[in-house]
Design a protein around this nucleic acid. Structure first.
Lengths: 161, 161
DNA sequence: TACTGTTACGTGATAATATAACAATACCCA
DNA sequence: TGGGTATTGTTATATTATCACGTAACAGTA
């Protein structure tokens, strides 16, 4: 497996982490959430890395920063972020990634490269309607939607993976 | 958590397992696959239970039937079934379920009840087009799509979960 | 300020899920 | 029949996730 790249294509990454953190702060004060030090730092880690990270990898970083070093520390912080749509869980990889469209009401579609594990978050609002009507036909009340697409990113496709 | 029911609504379940097994046999001989005893029995277990089962739960059944009792036995058989679309992996639950529409070219949407863990497999062909175009915009080559919707099934909604 | 209910955190232990590696066996086909 | 391949069994271990409990921080009340 090749090294994951920060995203499929370059972008202005310099400030995007900063912006996202600022947004999180604003969201927290607006909704009365407690973006505590561990939680904020966890988000910062995900934003800075800009890739899907395993809980234990995040935990190592947190521990290095003086926070607790037991699994629940990371899992709880990550759970909080996911719950408030500041991060997503990538089931396929048992990993977590900061949301790249915070604030947008979105149902993200994750494009996961099977060769380098890079994850891109695509928008696909259209999909939601289809899901809703399919669910409705079953009398099912939709709460959260998770869509994951496995395949090859441009770089790995090029490289002939 | 309530007990999972076989499906959101009753259906003629008596023969559906039998039919699916017959289909699998036919598929195997048509495509030259080796639906060996462990593999066939694994599919039969999933079909008969008609619910999402963990790998270790499947393993217990297999062991009771005289097959090996170590994890790889179950994981390998399940992997085979998933690869050939005879079963699906439900990431959210770390579990596996027999495909309820074998043979159909489908991109299943799983409706997962957060209260009782029941899983229904809905069809949503429309969704695929949307996914494809979203992926195309990223230069991403789609290979497999997995969509999981979390919410409440009719029974649990009724029960006020 | 003291009291109280609630939420969050730290920690140790353990559960649940999944894979690596290798040996033994069964199958296929020339 | 023999040699290559796919499959299975088995041992060991890696990885991911949760439970349980005690303490600390916070919010609201009087």
């Amino acid at each position: 497996m090749r090294e994951p790249s920060p995203a499929f294509h370059d972008h202005d990454h310099a400030n995007c982490a900063e912006d996202a953190l600022a947004f999180a702060d604003e969201l927290a004060s607006r909704k009365g959430l407690r973006l505590t030090p561990v939680r904020r730092r966890t988000l910062e880690i995900l934003l800075t890395e800009h890739r899907a990270m395993g809980a234990y990898e995040v935990l190592d970083r947190l521990a290095a920063d003086g926070f607790g070093n037991q699994p629940p520390v990371a899992y709880r912080a990550l759970e909080f972020l996911v719950e408030h749509d500041l991060a997503h869980r990538i089931q396929r990889l048992n990993a977590f990634a900061a949301c790249t469209h915070p604030g947008d009401k979105h149902s993200p579609v994750f494009l996961i490269c099977r060769a380098c594990d890079t994850v891109a978050e695509a928008a696909a609002e259209v999909v939601l309607d289809a899901i809703d009507s399919a669910a409705e036909a079953h009398g099912f009340a939709v709460e959260r939607v998770n869509m994951e697409v496995l395949g090859l990113c441009p770089a790995c496709k090029e490289a002939g993976a």
